[in-house]
Simulated scan of single mutants.
Amino acid sequence: MSQVSAGTTPHSTQFTHENIAFIGAGNMTSAIIRGMVKAGYPANMLMATNPSQEKLDVLANDLGIMTATDNAAALDFAETIVLAVKPQILADMCAALPESKQDKSYISIAAGVSVARIQEMLDAPVQVVRTMPNTPSAIGMGMTGLYAQNNTSTDLRICAEYCLKQVGETLWVTHEDDINTVIAAAGSSPAYLFMFAEAMQTKTQELGLTEQDAKLLVAQALAGAGKMLLENPDTDFATLRSNVTSKGGTTAAAIASFHTANLADIIADAMQAAVDRAREMQANI
């Protein structure tokens, strides 16, 4: 996966606060807004709209942001709109917006919806930054891929990166299809690790430990390994694995079993299946 060149990534540019409105008040919206407010973003410059008054009340009471049940209010409030509704209802939602929608800029966290398709839904060549966050964003440990067309303004790019950096790390990609690689490597991958953890927990219990003890052992080991990956950015993953694997030892025996089962091929096939499905879903939205 290729990153955009240094000249188009806005990492070092200061973001100026502006009104931002989120259409949709689900878990990802909540995580992003909470991260922004925690980082010092003025709550009165943020709005969320949603049909559910209950969801809005939680955000308003906890964070002091602006809320509305009418999506048109988002367009009155802000020039930058975050599209945070389910992909299957995005087209109908966009169609119901007033004509002023064509004068706004957009950040999309709707999975599987291309920039061209969003522009079609909004009936205008609006500027869009497409993003793909993952579920660990809920605890501030997210990984988000971002893509924008070449004519997208630096200001919108900076705004999108700022918002998503409040829930984790970000990575810009050059080609829109690379977002599907982000899905396979980061968007879907927490589930891969959860499945791995499930299998480890099951075997640990079969070997005699309690469910609680098995979960603690597996969760702490995986969390610690993940932290080691992050804290050793100049060390390749194979070296970290080798450092734990003494010749002829217990880890070596386990790794040999993985090799016999062709674990690398299994993982590659699973990731390719995720990419293929992402492309299929995008074509059908």
Rank of each mutant, 00 (worst) to 15 (best):
S242G: 12
L216K: 12
L230F: 08
C94L: 07
T210A: 12
M271F: 07
Q220H: 15
D213S: 09
P233F: 11
T67I: 01
I158Q: 15
S5I: 11
G224M: 06
Q166D: 05
L122D: 00
T80D: 00
G226D: 11
D234V: 05
N232R: 03
D57G: 03
I32P: 02
T80S: 04
T131P: 00
K203M: 14
E280V: 05
S246V: 12
P133M: 06
G226P: 05
Y162Q: 13
H17N: 08
S105V: 06
E206H: 10
A252L: 07
A148H: 02
S242T: 11
T29A: 15
K165A: 04
F22I: 02
G24Q: 01
N180K: 08
D103M: 09
M271I: 06
Y147P: 05
K101Y: 01
T235Q: 13
V85W: 01
A21C: 08
A274P: 01
S100V: 04
M281F: 14
K215F: 10
N232T: 12
K38V: 08
D236A: 10
R277Q: 15
S105P: 02
T154W: 09
L216E: 12
T210S: 15
V58L: 06
Q102I: 05
R157A: 15
D123K: 14
E161C: 09
A278N: 07
G145P: 03
Q272Y: 04
I267V: 15
M143V: 08
F258G: 08
S2P: 04
D103T: 09
A273E: 07
A124W: 05
I267H: 06
V37S: 04
K86W: 06
V173T: 06
E54S: 13
F194D: 10
T245G: 09
H11F: 13
M200P: 12
I32V: 15
D269W: 03
T260S: 09
Q201Y: 01
L90R: 06
R241K: 14
M132W: 07
V218Y: 01
L230Q: 14
E198Y: 10
C163K: 02
L122A: 03
A191M: 12
A238T: 12
R130P: 02
T9I: 10
Q119A: 04
I139Q: 13
V126N: 01
E211A: 12
S114M: 03
I20C: 03
P98R: 04
K215V: 12
V218H: 10
